[in-house]
């Protein structure tokens, strides 16, 4: 298993470098010059000022040289300097990463737990009103755009009944600490995490239901039933465990999409994570910061995928670690 992990890590690093190079060029293909953006915001844009900014950014150098400097930096774990924010990129990302991890992992847990639970119930009671209700519930959240669910959530839970805060990570100015702070952050987390989680929950519900119905028809389930095992044991030990494989695959593949969803969720709920950092960096053509966020997100997706492969083995012992 160790050699499997080691080889996957090496492959991952190569993929990451390829992503860096690709993104480096993709970003520069987009129209818009960071120096002009900054000069424009300063309310003036004479030639000297724009040229000064280009020199500061290193944008006056040939593209291959810019790439070489950047890749050399990434290899030594230096993600560069954001001239716009006047700070090292790694510092800016590290400030925001915990909030994004908290949001995405909570949303991920919500989506998986609820998705598998609802999917199992829907399959167990297939064709009944409960199945229909769960299916409709799942479809609604699958069909609605995340930003819309977010805004409706705010309207209902913040404006109308005033149960939950509409934005932010914590109550500004409250200076809470200890358990009170944890509760405060949790209250702020509920809506963004549910918004992001419910979208993916819908997919897992549908996938678990379909997969369980398929597995139920297989011969080994009949054998289990013939052995006289109780329905609950059959569902849990035989059907669900086998039916989970496609769900795990999907969950692994969703790690990237989850971060994409976080960009929208973090923007609507003013959640101070890297999704918003990425969005702002994109609008402002803050090349180094944007590339830095891409590198971190790519690394997160690769790590998620590795974990998915490991979880496969746990769910289904028949799968072997081959490279």
């Amino acid at each position: 298993m160790l050699s499997f992990v080691a080889q996957r890590v090496v492959k991952g690093v190569i993929v990451l470098l390829a992503i860096v190079v690709l993104n480096f060029f993709l970003i520069r293909l987009a129209p818009g010059d960071p120096a002009v953006v900054m000069a424009g915001e300063a309310g003036a844009s004479d030639q000297i000022f724009v040229q000064q900014l280009r020199e500061k950014f290193g944008l006056d150098k040939p593209l291959p040289e810019q790439l070489f400097v950047y890749v050399k930096g990434v290899v030594t774990l230096d993600l560069g300097f954001s001239f716009r924010q006047q700070a090292p990129v790694s510092k800016l990302i590290l400030e925001r990463l915990p909030a994004t991890l908290l949001l995405t992992l909570t949303a991920f847990a919500i989506s998986l737990v609820l998705g598998i639970l609802f999917g199992t119930f829907a399959a167990r009671f297939a064709g009944t009103w409960l199945d229909t209700a769960i299916t409709i519930f799942a479809l609604i959240f699958y069909a609605m755009p995340i930003f819309w669910v977010a805004l409706m959530g705010i309207l209902l839970f913040s404006v109308t009944v005033d149960w939950l805060p509409s934005f932010g990570y914590e109550t500004v100015g409250a200076n809470l600490s200890g358990p009170a702070h944890v509760v405060d952050v949790a209250r702020h987390l509920i809506m963004p995490a549910m918004t992001l989680g419910l979208f993916f929950m819908a997919t897992y519900t549908r996938m678990t239901r379909a997969s369980m119905l398929e597995v139920k028809r297989l011969d080994f389930v009949k054998t289990a039933r013939a052995k006289g095992l109780s329905d609950a044991v059959i569902q849990r030990r035989h059907v669900l465990r086998n039916a989970l494989l496609p769900v795990v695959t999907l969950a692994g593949a969703h790690s990237g999409t989850l971060i994409g969803g976080a960009v929208i969720t973090e923007t609507v709920f003013a959640w101070p994570g890297i999704g918003r950092l990425m969005y702002d960096a994109l609008l402002q053509r803050d090349y180094n910061l944007l590339l830095g966020v891409f590198v971190i997100c790519s690394a997160m997706v690769l790590t998620f995928n590795l974990i998915t492969d490991l979880v496969y083995r746990l769910v289904d012992p028949r799968i072997e670690f081959t490279t």
Binding site: S158, V159, D162, S166, F167, T267, A270, Y279
Partner: peptide
Amino acid sequence: WQIIPDAAARSVAYET
């Protein structure tokens, strides 16, 4: 100075 990126969310922040 509160940083709220979405215009609708800024309205709600005032409203609430």
